[in-house]
Amino acid sequence: MDTSAHLNSVVEQTITFADWVHGKDASAPVPTCPKWTLADLVDHVGATQRMVTMLVGERMSEPSSAYARYVPAPTDSAQWRAWLTDGAAEAKQAFESVADDTPVWDPSGGSAGVPFWSRRLFGEASVHRADAAAALGMRYELAPEPAVAAIEDWLDTMTSRGYWENRPDFADAMRGGGQTLHFHATDAPGEWLARREPDRVVLERTHTKADVAVRGPAAELLLVLSRRRPLDAAPGLELHGDRALLDQWLEHMDWVTD
């Protein structure tokens, strides 16, 4: 998916998310983010989109100004739909005003800029819509190709140099001696090999034998890798190899819920 496709999906998924949460109980718990209420989830989704809109639209070279201009969600849930859909539309407009090579700060450590943020907003929309579905008893669906793109975002972000450097707890847990985890989507092209090295996690797009492998439908794989569904509750997935290695990996995939 390119930047335009990512943002089109962000708008579409945000509209669905907004329809789901509109007028709902702000204090409702979000089971997939145990410390959050529905109000926290809405606030995070909309405020993040607005922060990225500022970063991209104003071509910021560092993030402090965007962080300082945090825009909280309305306290009245009857206003959530308009607030969320307006924010997604503004984000799309901001990305349409720049090129992929426009210099914009991002935390990846790779100077990925505009493409990084378009992919991140797409990944955020995909995963947090699953949170809303869990909180409200809605059916979560994501087509195989977008689900593969969301997995790509999740794994790319978690294995980025910036994430490793900024999360020493994650780095300490993930240091290894070459242990490998293979993730394979079976309903759309998508395979990833994560190799734990002493100084980083190396991510490759390849099919090879690994210490542990998980394969199955992309949407189920996304929900398990993002800790939105326990592996034992994902019957469409097949596990081969070292379950303890996978469990340790999943235990530390807690970035969105922090």
Rank of each mutant, 00 (worst) to 15 (best):
L41A: 05
L41D: 08
L41M: 10
V42H: 00
V42I: 01
V42P: 02
V42C: 00
D43V: 12
D43S: 15
H44R: 10
H44Y: 03
V45T: 12
V45C: 08
G46H: 11
A47C: 03
A47Y: 00
A47I: 00
T48G: 14
T48C: 10
Q49H: 09
Q49R: 09
Q49Y: 01
R50P: 00
M51Y: 05
M51H: 11
V52R: 02
V52G: 05
V52H: 04
T53N: 02
T53G: 01
T53W: 00
M54G: 04
M54Q: 14
M54R: 15
M54P: 00
M54D: 15
L55K: 11
L55V: 14
L55H: 10
V56T: 07
V56L: 00
V56E: 07
V56K: 02
G57K: 14
G57S: 15
E58R: 09
E58G: 06
E58C: 05
E58K: 07
R59A: 15
R59Y: 12
R59T: 15
R59N: 13
M60E: 10
S61E: 13
E62S: 06
E62Q: 10
E62G: 02
P63S: 13
P63D: 14
P63A: 12
S64I: 13
S65M: 09
S65Y: 08
S65G: 08
S65P: 01
A66K: 12
A66G: 12
Y67C: 06
Y67M: 10
A68Q: 13
A68D: 14
Y70W: 08
Y70S: 13
Y70R: 15
Y70M: 08
Y70I: 04
Y70P: 03
V71A: 14
V71W: 11
V71S: 15
V71H: 09
P72C: 05
P72M: 04
A73M: 04
A73Y: 04
A73F: 01
A73D: 07
P74R: 07
P74W: 04
P74Y: 03
P74C: 07
T75I: 04
T75P: 03
T75N: 10
T75R: 08
D76E: 07
D76I: 02
S77H: 03
S77G: 00
S77Q: 06
